[in-house]
Amino acid sequence: MSEVMLEGKKLHKSFSDKNGQILAVNNVSFSLEEGEFLGIVGESGSGKSTLLRMMAGLEEVDGGNLYYQHTDYTGDAAKNTGRFLQMIFQDAYASFDPRMKMRDSVMEGVKRKNLKDTSEEKEVEKRLLDLMSGLGLDDSLLEKRPKELSGGQCQRMSILRALLSGAKILLCDEITSALDVVTQNQICKLLQRIGRESNVSIIFVSHDIALVSKFCTKMLVMHEGQVVEEGSTSDVIASPKHPYTRQLISCSRGLSL
């Protein structure tokens, strides 16, 4: 059995607004194994994005614990969690400083290691170019600004930035929902390949159950802050237990009960 990379136990998060407290994440537990492609499905407001931001340390955890390779990192700031996980965001364009060249943006994660000697610098440059060609990106894009790229190219750049930083876990927050269907498929296949080849574990949050069922090996279904169903993708799709999952499946194109 492969090693557990990321684990969450009984996670809670609530927000207060004018109507009182809202439980965004309610008693959620999950585990992610090495090289696994885990999908989290749910409608908007189901708490899936909040859960992801909690894992990254971008959102405070109200209750429960988070573990990276069995070490508790609950409450660690995002500054430190970035060492082992990186997030990829829904809005690819907004993921890059509009005033920065792509090269400077993607190198941000690397520069923390203080590239002093030139040989190390060369090595990073080589890795960067290798990743670029691996992701099907032209080198010239590095000198451009986000506005000059297409949505798909920009999203690949986000993936590149995450991989370049050496992260072992990628947290993808609705990363394909702003892309067309063809690009959507390409990005997902790319993630699948990255997972296999570089042993990177991926959590893929989406509202599109058809997409998740196509690429993910395991899935969680979230509804109103709670996990209502979990298991291997084939089991969940073949025999959904919770009425909400059934509803999701019946509403989506390409899937049938």
Binding site: L58, T81, L85, D97
Partner: peptide, 21 residues
């Protein structure tokens, strides 16, 4: 903005984010 979150996840300091981004 996501690019600020990305910079935080890249381990950048508050000073860096304030001055560069």
């Amino acid at each position: 903005q996501p690019y600020i979150s990305a910079a935080i996840l890249s381990g950048k300091s508050d000073f860096y984010i304030l001055t560069k981004h």
